[in-house]
Nucleic acid binder design. Sequence first.
RNA 1: CGGGGCGUAGCGCAGCCUGGUAGCGCGCCUGCUUUGGGAGCAGGAUGUCGGAGGUUCGAAUCCUCUCGCCCCGACCA
Length: 504
Amino acid sequence: MVKPAKNAISPTRDEDYPMWYQEVVKASEMAEKSPVRGCMVIKPWGYALWENIVATMDGMFKDTGVKNAYFPLFIPLSYLEKEAEHVEGFAKECAVVTHHRLETGDDGKLVPAGKLTEPLIVRPTSETIIGESMSRWTSSYRDLPILLNQWANVVRWEMRTRIFLRTSEFLWQEGHTAHASEAEARERTMMMLDVYTRFVEEYLAMPVVRGRKTASERFPGAVDTVCIEAMMQDKKALQAGTSHFLGQNFARSSDIRFQNADKKEEFAWTTSWGTSTRMIGGMIMTHADDDGVIMPPRVAPAHVVLLPIFRKEEDQRKVMEYTRSLADALGARTYNGSRIRVEIDDRDTGGARAWDWIKKGIPLRAEIGPRDMEKDCVFLGRRDEAPGKKVSLGREDFISTIDTILDDIQNNLFNRALAFKRANTVEIDDTEAFKTLFTSPDENSIHGGFAMAHWCGSAECEAKIKEDLSVTIRCIPFDSKTEQGSCICCGNASGRRVLFAKAY
RNA sequence: CGGGGCGUAGCGCAGCCUGGUAGCGCGCCUGCUUUGGGAGCAGGAUGUCGGAGGUUCGAAUCCUCUCGCCCCGACCA
């Protein structure tokens, strides 16, 4: 009757974490690999999640005065060349369009023809092409600030891809702003990091560390990069969003100038900031368990699935009627500002049906059978609890408290993740202990964590640690207290701890 | 781009060493019986054995070349 396998996902996290992740994604039906190298197909269940993410973040951006626009997918090669560090950062991973036509060759195969005079690159990010527009739109300080965002796809030809975490093409938003003063641009950089923090913590239920990147980890061409870093269940760090203060670097290269109130000409101060479908990978690796994905209720494609159960033919109609009426009642309720999203699954597949929804990570499963109907109850299971744990709940109670239950799940997920992050964040002063933490006892075992350790500030020490242990400085946390210590690498004086971790 | 592994049905795999009609499990389709946590029985469909060339009477199997994928590294706002 019952399969011996305890968990829906094999291998488990402990057995093989990378493989577990791939299986979780597959079993959830969120996305799959496409025939195109390094690219993914986002399936309806995954795309609905993305749409919820987009809708929420988009509203948050607009609340800060940002407006949406759209710029071309193709960028003239010469644009990328304008900013020296920027070219260097992206040149190695660009898809390049060199032709605009196909012809049939002698062997009957299609061959590119019609060579472009100037190659086009597929945007890896849009600073340069948006900068071109901004330079034309800006002549007076009265034209500033310009506060833009675009939802788009970008392409970065990565050597090694992982679904959602790093794909050659991915969906994201990129915000680009131009300001008349440095202070205002810096303020915007932090403001957008605050938006990211709020979204990721309050919606994706992922606790983050906020901080500043070191020079070597900065966005190519940026003066300052700030970020949020989350801890995955294998204790590695995942950058969940970045916000860049670009100084006047891109304004110079794109010629974004304006005349100030004193009739003097100045270069504008710009920012850019982005989050991507990578957040979905982070969400999965933060909450999913050995039974599959767990969707935080606030972003879940559906909040609850109703599973009608009927033994006899004559029960079917009654149960289905009861189920539909319950669905209507639930759908009229709201949670966190949107209607309760209800699915009814009346497939006749026995227990497999419930497991499908567990693997998809739906927050609530409500079974409705003749026995429940008699008591006017549902048999309710929560995704943040064990699959077998279910409670009988009166229909009216269920309808009136579903928002509270969903909130409870949302909070529970965040608190669990926070506890995990705290349990695996350590202050380390001893070099040997630092090495031990980041050295795997055997090939595949989960190890490491967030190490708060002193760093002298030299790029040499940073590079040496990366070389020796594959550990990088994820950020210099804003909340790390100033204290005297000695560099974990060279022993020289340091005034502050930084966050070291292995990273995705 | 380096190291390792793998390409056989939708998915997961066996068969290869030792050449001889293409297999298994899951899924899928049909029917019946079932149904409160991954249902049972019976029947059925699905393959350029990644591709090209070679050896051979005969190649999934041996040889050569090639393409692709995965994992680990390197790289990676």
